[in-house]
Amino acid sequence: MTKINTTLTKNPKNLPPSDKLGFGQYFTDHMFVAKYREGQGWYDAEILPYSPLALDPAASVFHYGQALFEGMKAFRQDSGEIVFFRPEFNYDRLCEGAARLCLEAPPKELFMEGLKKLVEADERWIPNGPNTSLYIRPTLIGSEGFLGVRPSHETIFFIILSPVGSYYAEGAKPVRIWAEETYLRAAPGGLGAVKAGANYASSLKAALAARQKGYAQVLWLDVEHQGIEEVGTMNVFFVMDKEIVTPALNGSILAGGTRGSVIQYLKSKNLPIVERKITITEVIEKIKSGELKEAFGTGTAAVVSPIGVIHYQGKDWDINKGETGPLSTQIFTEITSIQRGTKADPFNWITKLK
């Protein structure tokens, strides 16, 4: 086990108001950093005051895009206990993504110990207001300085923390989304199933255009601009008369942790959840016929986000009259109640800090 050294800040920051957190605007007092070098292994693991990283200008992350991250959360339950939501899922997905990007993943013990020690150091930052949490961003980057297309022989693993409120300005209200008919987020055989920084870079232009038109997110379609894949930062579900459909994982869709939790919950209630290909044409036809009852996105940031409007081919298509549906509400309440500790955890999703 790599030893983790701790240096605490002498100048702690003031805590932001819990009712004005937004998302990703504030960062805690400390960060966790560990380094890897081929032939040496992991070294210099430490908790230290939040500060800039020192990187060679020729580092692989800048020139060849070797960057990968995870998104997770810690909660202050009503009892005062601090818990994580499915951290082992995030570790496993980090390892899968690291293999795809030819980065060295940290050992599980180092990941978990660094995570827990960092959250312990910054425990005072965990908010306890409604719909608040501590967002956790574990990140891997290629740090070796060189010019030449090959994997980096050096990796930096770091974790930063941010107290957060609602991801969307709309809060829990249904969002308006734009079905993208020009740009692609990912393609078969690419990086779509990995939380690579490159995926998010390629999404920015379409997302910016959608926001300028009054839409919160982009509904990404496949290479034929028919098959539905993801909604920006979320996986997506459609509630029909006879089934609940979410796009099947096809190599270009991210396997979201909240997506998996929702599927597990729906199955536990014997609800007809189906993973299959679903096209934008089918969704529009189901809206026209009245068979589409509601739609929602799922993700770590928003948990469950109802979808009130889909814009496609020049027209806004209303879903459930633009209102939050009963299943969206039920799932959101169930998952957040487990996270908060007000309901039992029959799925073993919760890991205690201590």
Rank of each mutant, 00 (worst) to 15 (best):
I307F: 12
I160R: 03
V304C: 02
P52A: 09
P16L: 09
A121I: 10
A45F: 03
E294N: 01
P174A: 06
P57G: 09
K352F: 11
G189V: 14
L292C: 09
Y64S: 01
V274K: 12
L161N: 04
K108R: 15
W317S: 00
T281N: 10
T300Q: 12
L55P: 07
K315R: 13
G171S: 15
V223T: 14
T336C: 00
V223A: 10
A98P: 08
A209S: 14
T6D: 00
A248F: 05
K117H: 04
V274C: 02
A206L: 07
G171F: 06
T351E: 15
L48I: 13
K73C: 07
I160Q: 08
R100P: 06
Q313H: 01
G325Q: 02
R93E: 03
V194F: 06
G227H: 07
E170C: 00
S162Q: 04
K195R: 02
W220D: 01
E323C: 04
E81V: 10
A58L: 14
W178G: 00
A302E: 14
A255R: 14
L94Q: 04
F75W: 11
S328I: 01
G314L: 07
K354A: 09
E123V: 15
E104G: 02
V223F: 05
T298C: 14
I287L: 02
R124F: 03
T28L: 12
V239F: 10
Y183H: 12
A295D: 05
V303G: 06
S79C: 07
I177W: 01
F62P: 01
K286M: 08
P272S: 07
F75D: 02
Q212F: 06
S166Q: 13
E120Y: 08
E291D: 11
G325A: 02
L292H: 08
G341I: 10
G148M: 08
I136C: 04
T324R: 15
D241G: 03
T233H: 00
Q330H: 11
V119G: 07
Q313M: 08
C95M: 10
R259Y: 03
V236H: 06
E180H: 00
I228F: 05
N250P: 07
R137W: 12
F347E: 04
Y64V: 09
P12A: 08
D241V: 09
D241I: 04
V33E: 15
T2N: 05
V223Q: 14
I160L: 13
L191G: 00
E323D: 06
F85W: 12
E230H: 01
F296L: 03
E170N: 09
A255M: 13
A198L: 13
S337T: 05
M234L: 05
L327Y: 05
P12M: 10
V245H: 05
A45D: 05
P151K: 11
A206T: 01
A187N: 02
A54L: 10
P17Q: 15
R185Q: 06
K205C: 14
Q40Y: 11
K116Q: 13
A187T: 13
T28R: 12
D19Y: 11
I307S: 05
F146E: 07
P16E: 12
F23T: 10
S51E: 12
D29N: 15
A34C: 14
S261K: 06
F62S: 00
L53H: 14
K205V: 15
G232I: 01
T281H: 08
E144R: 06
E243R: 13
S143H: 07
T279A: 00
